[in-house]
Amino acid sequence: MGGTGSGGTGMGQWGIRMVVLGTALAFLVGCGSKTVETVEEAPAADSAWTLAAPIRIDGVRTADGGRSLVVDAEVPDGPRDCVRGLRGALDTVEHGTMYVRVTFETRSLNRDSGCTGTRRVEAAVKLGEPLNSRKVMVNSQDVYTTAGATPPALRRCGENGCDPTPPRCASASYQQAVNDTDIPEHTSWEERGCDDTWLVLDLSTRMGPVCGDAGDGCSSSGVSQRWFYRAEASGWRPVTTNGDAGCAGIHKVLPELPARLCASLPRLDRG
């Protein structure tokens, strides 16, 4: 009886060990299945990355004595990683222009990525040789030049091209001055005075409906401003506005303006 009791106790301990071991294996198998699921999800996440170009180029400046560029760009942003592998590279140099490419990989094309915001980044581009007076084209779109720029920044070429028009008392130069003034489109101008340093223009913008014949019952009005410009290397730069007659009003804010350019100015009719 004593021997039989001892054997029963041994079997009971063995049974308990088997239950504990079985529970441990079940737990490990459960953990293993979670690990496998995580590994399987990784390729799906990686497949969401797509090669892209910046949303916008905000500026370009030189570095390393003109042998490198720093491109300020706007890229997607969100709560998760939205950009990786940001890269700037020089593609080619042709006809006085360095062609630069800025790219990165992003998840923003995936609606579930959360990459709905933006942020600013800097992409470095090694040129291998000084930029000197050559232009820079970024991603076959934006063109920048050293002409008329304040180093180390480059100047973005606008609708007047990359080569600034020297300020002069001529119609083409007046048109550039109007284009560089913060006013509505389709604004007309009238010269009121000009010399080698100063330009005075009256600018008029029509407001209201577009009218046809005078007798069709349609009426519109105009908004006028008198702008004063100073000559700079890149063209006429807007300085201030004043619609008073003569020199008294403008000399309060621009005393250096020659009297010969303001003495005969009429009071501006603002329409």
Rank of each mutant, 00 (worst) to 15 (best):
I57R: 04
D213V: 05
L199D: 00
M207P: 02
G243I: 02
T187V: 02
R267E: 15
G217I: 05
C218Q: 12
R101N: 12
S6I: 11
P209C: 03
L265H: 00
L261M: 10
R120C: 07
K126Q: 14
C218G: 10
A124C: 00
V36Q: 11
H95E: 15
E232L: 07
P130G: 13
S140T: 11
G2L: 08
P79A: 14
D182H: 09
A53G: 10
G128Y: 00
G117R: 08
A233P: 00
G235I: 06
T240N: 03
R192S: 09
G22F: 08
G10P: 00
V71I: 15
E190Y: 09
T97G: 04
T145L: 08
T150S: 13
L131H: 05
A63D: 02
G161P: 04
D91F: 07
L21R: 12
K252D: 15
Y229K: 03
M18G: 04
S68V: 01
A233K: 12
Y144S: 04
R107K: 10
L127N: 03
T118P: 10
A73K: 08
V223G: 10
Y229D: 01
I183N: 06
R206I: 05
T103P: 01
R192K: 09
L261A: 08
A231M: 06
I57N: 06
D196P: 00
S140M: 12
T97Q: 10
G88V: 00
M1R: 12
Y144I: 14
H95A: 15
A42G: 12
A73V: 15
P152D: 15
P79I: 06
E185S: 14
E191K: 09
R168Y: 11
C211S: 02
L201F: 01
R56W: 09
G217H: 05
S33R: 10
T50V: 14
C194I: 05
V253I: 15
C169H: 11
R87I: 02
E74M: 08
L203N: 02
A231K: 10
R226P: 06
R80T: 12
F104D: 06
A233V: 11
G22L: 10
V136E: 09
V121F: 08
R84P: 06
M98G: 07
L261C: 11
L203R: 03
Q225N: 09
G12E: 13
S221F: 11
G88L: 02
R237S: 10
C262S: 03
G128C: 03
R84W: 05
G114S: 02
G128D: 05
R267G: 15
V75M: 13
R87M: 05
R230W: 01
P79E: 14
I183Q: 05
G78H: 04
